[in-house]
Design a protein around this nucleic acid. Structure first.
Lengths: 101, 101
DNA sequence: ACGTTATTACCGGTAATTTCGAAATATTGA
DNA sequence: TCAATATTTCGAAATTACCGGTAATAACGT
């Protein structure tokens, strides 16, 4: 991941609704949850929800799988791990001799 | 840090210029760098730079200390660590029995 | 006081985001 | 095919973000 990719993920995750959606999804497990459940849990109107979910999809943080008439949102843990790895390796002191503990 | 705090930090860091600024600062060490150096390194116009620096300050990611006529930007590593800690603890599977590896 | 350097404040224009009701689409079960 | 359910698209307003030129401020050296 390069700087621009990471910036995009951070931006898309950097919204209270979207962070809550992603948190709820990740905690729920590897199967994810339907849009409707998220919507009800977090009390976000239908159309707003769609936009936020779409943003998370475009950031690669979740994917959607259709099952009949419900669309399940599945969290992509690896995407977050990649971002965290970037931050840990690129946003720390370069000169380790001066690193605190 | 609660969800809203984290969302704000992510949002403010989620811009190519600002992520590059923060990366440059953190890598440079605990003393940080003057605005002018960042500006020249990253080739961002004066006034735009001010906006981005202000955003990072408001997110608590950096602080500025005046030294004569130059203003040094100092990265606040702890702020990023807090965000990473939040993501690692709140955006992972709750049921560890199903955690992969 | 004056010129120089470093940085910010102000401003206006443009673009993007957020919001959400209402209508539309897709899918299923009967 | 019809009604019910799940989700998205459309549309439109309000808000916020972004950008960068120019003017203002702050601090220094002489």
């Amino acid at each position: 991941m390069d700087v621009d990719d990471v910036a995009k993920v951070l931006k898309d995750l950097g919204h209270p609704h979207r962070l809550r959606i992603f948190k709820r999804l990740t905690r729920s497990g590897f199967d994810g949850l339907p849009v409707g459940v998220l919507r009800e849990d977090l009390d976000i109107p239908h159309s707003s929800m769609t936009h936020h979910v779409a943003a998370l999809v475009s950031a690669g943080l979740i994917e959607q799988v259709r099952e009949g008439r419900i669309l399940r949102c599945v969290p992509k843990y690896g995407r977050l791990w990649d971002v965290i790895a970037f931050l840990q390796s690129e946003c720390c002191v370069e000169d380790r001799s001066r690193q605190i503990d």
